[in-house]
Write a protein that binds this DNA or RNA. Sequence first.
DNA 1: AACTCTTTCAACCGCTCCGGG
DNA 2: GCCCGGAGCGGTTGAAAGAGT
Length: 368
Amino acid sequence: MGHHCCSKQKVKRGLWSPDEDEKLIKHITTNGHGSWSSVPKLAGLQRCGKSCRLRWINYLRPDLKRGSFSEQEERTIIDVHRILGNRWAQIAKHLPGRTDNEVKNFWNSFIKKKLIAQGIDPSTHNHILSTTTNNNNNDFNIIHACNKSLPQAQQQQQTTFSLMNIFSSSSSSSSSSAFPSSLPYNYNHIPLREILFSSTSDQYQNPNMFWSSTTDTTTTPEQNNYNIPHAPSMESLVSQASTVTTTKPIIISSSSSPIILNPSTCGLLDEDFIMWNSGSYELNIEADQLIGKEEIQTQVLDPVVVVEMNNKTNHIHEMMNSTTGASFERSNNFDFDFVESTTSTVLPCGMYCNNNYHSPIDQFAWDC
DNA sequence: AACTCTTTCAACCGCTCCGGG
DNA sequence: GCCCGGAGCGGTTGAAAGAGT
C-alpha cells in the first residue's frame, strides 16, 4: 500500500537508486520542485511526491552538510532540546546543513545514550531519580528537588520544603554540611525550561535557586508573592557556611530580591539572549565577608546589577572576571530567536524575569 | 568463514496544520 | 463552517553495515 497521497499510483518504495537520484536532482535543479505531488510524474519517477520530497530534503539537497556531528553541534542539540523537547525540525534550524531526520537519528543513536550513561534523563534533562527513599538524606532531597517534571504547585511546595529542611538541618547539626559535597548537577544539566518556569509564577520555584524576600525590605507586595514560607534569610544562610565555594550555595542579589544559587550553575543570558556560562566557576569568599560588608556584597552583586542597569555584554564579562575570577565563555550559539524584546532583566543561571514577571521568554516556555 | 547480535540511518507511516474552494 | 489536498512533522521501522563470537 502506498501513501494515501498517491495510493492510485503504482509507486516504488524503499531505497533510492542512483538513477532515481539523478532524475530527481535534474528535475528540481532545472524546474524547482513546485508542487511535490507533481514531481514524480514530471521527473519520470515511480515514486510518490512525499517520497521525492523526503529524498530531496534529507539527502539530495545541495546545501546539506554531510559527515559526523561536531561537539559544538552536539552541544547545540542538547541545549535546544532542553527547551524545545523533540521538536527536531526546530532544533535542526539551529544547525545549518543538518536535517530534522539527521538530528533525530543522532539524538536517538548517540546523545540519548550518552545522557543516560551520565545519569541524565534525556527527555527532561534532569538527573535520573535515585531509588533511595531515605528522606533524611540531604543528597536525596536535592536530587528529588531537581527531578520533578513539569511544575505542579503541590510538588513545588514539597520541593521547597525539602530545601528548607536541608538549610535548617545544618544549623541544628554541626556535624553535617548544609549541602552535599557535590551538587547533583552542573550548569550544563540544568533543565532550562524548568528555570524559565520558575521565574514566572509564585507557584513555581526553581529548586536550586529561589526567591527569598524575608530580609529584603525593598520588595513590593507583588514581589512578596514569591515569598517562601519560612525561607531562610540571606544572613542566616551565609552564617551557616564558613566558606562559600563551588559546592555550597551563594547568594546573589538583584536590586529587588536576593537569589540563592549554586555557583557551579552560574550562567548568564546576555542582552542578545546568548547563554554564557563558566566551566570552572569558583567563588571563594569567606562568609563573614558577606555579612555586613557592603563592598564585598557589592562584588557579588555587581554582575547582576550591571546586567540590569546597563545590559552591556562586555561590561558583564569584565565585571564577572574582575570581581569573581571566573572565566566566562560563550557557551554556544544559543540563538533565542523567539525572544522579541530585550528590555527585561537578565539574571544568573539562565533565570530570567522582567519587571512584570512575565517575559517573552517565559511566555515561550509556557507556550511550548 | 559463518553466524548472531547490535547499531545506524534512510525511508515510511500517520498525524496535524493550513490554505483554498 | 466544512471538506479536501498538500506540506510538514515526529515516531517508528527495517535493511544494511558493523561488531562480536
